[in-house]
Design a protein around this nucleic acid. Structure first.
Lengths: 155, 155
DNA sequence: CCAACATAGGTGATGTGTCAACTATTCCGG
DNA sequence: CCGGAATAGTTGACACATCACCTATGTTGG
């Protein structure tokens, strides 16, 4: 027996889906227009920047991003072709590879980040109360917790 | 001068992005495994079902979904090939086309919907308080309001 | 009537995400 | 030290989204 959603839940769900679609589209266009980077590029570059170590193993990057390795592999190939990152052989493990930020990649992320953050503020946080920000964090944590535990919830 | 996000905001933003990524991936896999439909298929079929009129103009569908017409056109071509929808000529306007739900499409959506709703409940709403649901709706409305102002305004 | 324009919708190229299968290496028990 | 299992990462096929452009038709002012 399936329970349908209540009116409030349906409203919240539709709102969430719509916000998602429009927000990510908007952020992607802004970033692309402003810096030529995609949101995916941005996330990869942030990971590579947020470390003292300049090199990062592909698997480590995949874990940090929570991306499937296949997705990352494809994406790194594209970023490599555009000169945003480069590959280095891994001496300890001949199967592995290091990914390094190129100068061009560093410039791209440094140029892109401020406007991106401004856009996020402008579209989201400038319009939310502290309570709403807390609620968003709480909701995310709750749902992510549920997603983390595999399988359906035992009654 | 760019202000960076506060700790709380950063936490909320990361949570939101992670929740999004994982939630949509999970919902997509569930729907796909359970019924062979994608989330996009599902949304299209819902629009076609939620009407008394069995036929719908392509543009009308695009408006309802808030999809770009090109996206819809491509997607309808795929759904048509799989027999989920069909096209009909529009007598009033030879440029236009009607989209109709096929029997196969109707069966697919009717079979898919209950499990999908159950999954949404199980992953999201079973874990949120009434206040959190209200907050989610409020946040979405606020952000969508901001996104709405500034877009292509129908003069 | 007709030329300019607007509208409905489709097309092809490109970038992105997923799945399944693959290659090359490393690890590990006997 | 060797053969099978695990691991690192890649590849190819396909679904999807966007962009820029295209076709065909409708609309409208002169």
């Amino acid at each position: 027996m399936t329970r349908w959603l209540s009116d409030d839940e349906r409203r919240a769900w539709r709102g969430y889906l719509d916000m998602n679609a429009q927000l990510s589209a908007h952020l992607h266009r802004q970033l692309q227009a402003d810096s030529g980077l995609s949101l995916a590029d941005f996330d990869v570059l942030v990971q590579l920047t947020d470390r003292t170590e300049p090199r990062m193993r592909v698997g480590e990057l995949a874990d940090a991003l929570q991306w499937e390795k296949s997705r990352l592999s494809h994406h790194l190939a594209r970023m490599n072709k555009r000169g945003l990152i480069a590959r280095e052989d891994c001496p300890d493990d001949a199967r592995g590879a290091f990914i390094v930020l190129t100068e061009k990649g560093r410039q791209a992320i440094e140029q892109a980040a401020p406007a991106h953050v401004d856009t996020v503020r402008d579209l989201v946080f400038d319009h939310l109360s502290a309570e709403e920000v807390a609620a968003l964090a709480a909701i995310s944590a709750r749902v992510l917790g549920r997603l983390g535990r595999g399988g359906p919830e035992p009654a």
